[in-house]
Design a protein around this nucleic acid. Structure first.
Length: 869
RNA sequence: GCUUGGAUGGCGGAACUGGUAGACGCACGGGACUUAAAAUCCCGUGUUCCGUAAGGGACGUGCGGGUUCGAUUCCCGCUCCAAGCACCA
């Protein structure tokens, strides 16, 4: 007797859909549970076998929570704007909308064939006008916000105080624009000629790998001021139930550094440092540097500016001008990637200028080098070659002086206590910089001394001194940069801003949204660095009805991340035409904890999750959502590998889920993917290994149907297995250990199959345990057992703890910690009983023979160990 | 280089707060049923040594140490693998 999955699975899928069985309802009388899958991009290849792994896990949790009487929200939708679709459209010469529709249809069919319990009435599609309208609205909320540092939150732009000194409307507009959380900037970006678009830094590698070239080019771009949220994005990581790795990656990405900004006065080449106090300062110029090691300032022997630093023009002396210019030209042509690739060989040129080290009062040269990044800190550093490896390499290359001002603790301990010997010892030509904490040496002037101080104390002392003398102040820097938000693509959300001939601009009002893409036949990039939209004159160029002025629309569109920044909110109220989501729906589904469980790949650990957190915080500040964080619990499923490698089209090792369902059935695939191993681990797919699953389901089928079930009391031993199964299923679903729950199901089936009686109640409860994992077969069997309502709406069974207790447990008997026997005893047998029983054991007696017991260790319910000699 | 994980039979993996290592499955071997095969069911399966056998012993969770009566589990030091970051001063 075999389980006829081919008939049963599609037929239940249809019935469930007809009955709206999985419709989510915000029922205030019940607790809610929001379980979310990461937003799929409907690619032309359809689902691969890795997709259903995470989806099955959320499906199990969702079904389980429903049976535990939660109101469950488990939605799905499509992140459908994006470059691959646009490119496919060009290849096939049909509209991206058609490609999108086609791909979504395939994804939907495949997802449905797995029997997932999505509420399809809540499905969203980012390219849908009713969705993109709200993406544009979200953008405008960001655009119309500024970050108030005093209240530490974003507020409406109308609340921005305008300084009295600003009077003209033009200046006021500029001032406001410079404070918006969405702003225009002219910055060097990664331009890809073949794609006709800029790429985000994080997208560059991917396209270079595919053989495209990417160059740096300054362009006018929309930016989102995510840096305003750096500190909150960092500190709010603390309360999250997220994988440690992901939290660490986000911390790293934000990259907070605690240090000092220090000013170095620039002196002319001929100015002698002795008379620096007396010399007339005609053009006082200072360079501000950022450092996390102010304690090493006595070892700062030169300064380095980033080639892009504006001060380079000001300070470079005439005779060095040409060399500096050539160097700057070369470096600006390099991409970030190329600049970092040349890790070993440091390059740079001298500017001819000098600065005064405020600690030593010495004159030190100012160089430019591309190992200093323009966009981090102040774009300038004090170089301490003795205690920074990069500075050391640079100084070695250009024969700049290297001074040791920190000695390792060990040298101090071995040398004289005041550190003098250590200092001398450290002057041996070093081969690399000493970058760890230590004890300061050679670090004194006539006002302050750090000698003998621990790095931690030195930092404090020198910072205070620098601050007192007006040379510097404590400062915090972040690696996080503002988010480049525009793309020169057709297939994305248009940015709802128009520009007038006088240079002013106007954001579209709510009643003018959505701003739809023009329906054009040719959506190839304009070839001018603008998107295809620039060529659609009747769309771009028009007379604005509200002002009567001639206007030109923004031709950039939003990046693909935009739609995925807030989709989880739309799911709460997807049909709403007046708001992105009603307050009630948001409060119900997102209330206090946000998304209760979010499962998706680790590849989104940083970008998607940091962008979405940022948008969410803006919405929170502006009063649109009730939590400061969107996702309480996050989980990354592992990859499913084929032949030890990631599945990919190019390797030709992709397993098609349609074939698998056709051969083995959806329930078997679901179970197999869960049984392979821990959800978070990468696991190899084996089409051979899957065989065990249809076999198991056949055994379930036979257990229920082969012989009539008995309406009898369940024997104690079987009852224990049942209650262990219930208890284990509950615990394992909560901890997402699906693999061990399934092992327990197998144990249940093995035990009950070999039993003479088939207690109906126990077998029904088992089916309820299995239902979240294998929804089709359990539903069919449930109905065949005479039920008239779905198993998936039944109440999940409760484990009775009294039934989990065993009559007898096996006690391990050891002599000198080696197992010499076993004995069955009541679990609450006392120490004496256990010891006596152990003494009588044959194996124990044999090994104790001729020996004296020195010590006896008894662990109740576990073991007896005789230490003898 | 840095960060975070990981390493257990032929394979995927299990093992609670230190207490029977190898649950469950795959594969393999043997048997039953069958004219035969498939399917199904039963038994066996870490390595090795002694014994004709029943049985008994030794070793065994990447490597080397340590703590402990006892370590896959805790501590120290390595090796290898995976993922991410990588001139962020």
């Amino acid at each position: 007797m075999r389980y006829p999955f081919k008939e049963i699975e599609p037929s239940w899928q249809k019935k469930w859909a007809d009955q709206n069985l999985y419709r989510s309802v915000a029922d205030p009388s019940k607790p809610k549970y929001y379980v979310l899958d990461m937003f799929p991009y409907p690619s032309g290849d359809g689902l691969h076998i890795g997709h259903p792994e995470g989806y099955t896990a959320t499906d199990i949790v969702s079904r389980y929570k429903r049976m535990c009487r939660y109101s469950v929200l488990h939605p799905i939708g499509f992140d459908a704007f994006g470059l691959p679709t646009e490119r496919q459209a060009m290849v096939e010469n049909i509209h991206p909308r058609s490609i999108t529709e086609r791909n979504i249809a395939t994804f939907t069919r495949q997802l449905k064939s797995f029997g997932f319990d999505y509420d399809w009435s809540r499905s969203v599609n980012t390219t849908d006008p009713s969705y993109l309208r709200w993406t544009q609205w979200m953008f405008l909320q960001i655009y119309n916000s500024w970050y108030d540092p005093e209240m530490d939150k974003a507020r409406h732009i109308d609340t921005l105080p305008i300084p009295k000194s600003i009077v003209s409307q033009h200046e006021i507009d500029e001032y406001i624009d410079s404070h918006r959380l969405a702003y225009l900037d002219h910055i060097p970006v990664n331009w890809c000629e073949q794609l006709g678009t800029v790429l985000a830094n994080e997208e560059v590698d991917e396209w270079i790998e595919k053989g495209y070239t990417v160059e740096r080019r300054p362009m006018r771009q929309w930016m989102l001021r995510i840096t305003a949220y750096a500190e909150r994005l960092l500190t709010d990581l603390n309360g999250l139930d997220w994988p440690a790795m992901t939290i660490e990656m986000q911390r790293n990405w934000i990259g907070k550094s605690d240090g000092s900004e220090i000013q170095f006065r620039v002196v002319s080449e001929y100015e002698e440092h002795e008379d620096m106090a007396a010399s007339p300062r005609t053009h006082e110029q200072t360079i501000t540097i950022f450092t996390t090691r102010p304690d090493t300032i006595f070892g700062a022997t030169y300064l380095v500016l980033a080639p892009e630093n504006e001060l380079v023009d000001v300070i470079t002396t005439p005779e060095y001008h040409d060399r500096v210019e050539i160097y700057r030209q070369v470096t600006t042509k390099k991409s970030d990637l190329e600049r970092t690739e040349l890790t070993k060989q440091k390059t740079g040129v001298f500017t001819g200028a000098f600065a005064i080290n405020p600690a030593t009062n010495e004159r030190i040269p100012i160089w430019i080098a591309d190992y200093v990044l323009a966009h981090y800190g102040t774009g300038a550093i004090m170089a301490v070659p003795g205690h920074d490896q990069r500075d050391f390499e640079f100084a070695s290359t250009f024969s700049l002086s290297i001074v040791t001002v920190v000695a390792p603790f060990t040298e101090i301990l071995e040398g004289s206590p005041d550190g003098r010997t250590a200092a001398t010892a450290a002057f041996q030509p070093p081969t690399k910089a000493f970058v760890d904490d230590g004890i300061n040496v050679n670090s004194a002037n006539n006002m302050v001394s750090l000698n003998g101080l621990h790095t931690i104390d030195s930092k404090r002392v020198i910072s205070e001194w620098l601050e007192e003398r007006g040379f510097g102040r404590r400062a915090i820097q972040y690696k996080l940069r503002d988010w480049l938000f525009s793309r020169q693509r057709y297939w994305g959300e248009p940015i709802p801003i128009m520009f007038f001939d006088d240079g002013s601009k106007r954001a579209l009002d709510d009643d003018e949204l959505p701003l739809l893409l023009p329906d054009v036949a040719d959506f190839k990039p304009a070839g001018t660095g603008e998107s295809a939209l620039a060529t659609v004159t009747e769309w771009v160029d028009f007379i604005d009805k509200k002002t009567g002025k001639h206007a030109r629309l923004e031709t950039n569109t939003m990046p693909q991340w935009a739609g995925s920044c807030w989709y989880y909110l739309r799911y709460c109220d997807p049909q709403n035409n007046n708001e992105f989501c009603s307050k009630e729906a948001e409060q119900y589904w997102m209330g206090d904890s946000g998304i209760d469980l979010y499962i998706g790949g680790a590849e989104h650990a940083v970008l998607h999750l940091i962008y979405a957190r940022f948008w969410h915080k803006v919405l929170f500040d502006r009063g649109y959502v009730s939590t400061s964080e969107p996702v309480r619990r996050l989980f990354h499923q592992g990859l499913i590998l084929a032949e030890g490698k990631k599945m990919s089209k190019s390797l030709g090792n992709v397993i098609n889920p349609d074939d698998m369902i056709d051969t083995f059935g959806a329930d078997a695939i679901r179970l197999y993917e869960m049984f392979l191993g821990p959800l978070e681990a990468s696991k190899p797919w084996s089409t051979q290994g899957i065989e065990g699953m249809p076999r198991f389901l056949d055994r379930v089928w036979r257990l229920v149907l082969e012989s009539p079930l008995d309406d009898v009391e369940c024997p104690r031993e079987l009852d224990r297995v049942l209650h262990e199964t219930i208890s284990k299923t509950r615990a394992d679903i909560e901890s997402l250990s699906m693999n061990t729950a399934i092992a327990q199901f197998m144990i249940f089936v093995n035990v009950f199959t070999s039993s003479d009686i088939r207690p109906r109640k126990a077998i029904e409860q088992f089916l309820q345990c299995l239902a979240p994992f294998a929804p089709h077969i359990t539903e069919e069997l449930w109905m065949r057992l005479g039920h008239s309502t779905s198993i998936h709406l039944s109440a999940f069974p409760e484990a009775d703890p009294t039934k989990l207790i065993k009559d007898e447990v096996q006690i391990v008997l050891q002599v000198n910690s080696k197992i010499r026997g076993k004995v069955m005893l009541s679990p609450d047998a006392d120490e004496q009983t256990m010891e006596h029983a152990a003494m009588k054991d044959e194996g124990v007696m044999r090994h104790l023979d001729g020996k004296t017991i020195r010590k006896t260790i008894v662990v109740r319910g576990k073991l007896v160990n005789f230490i003898a000699s």
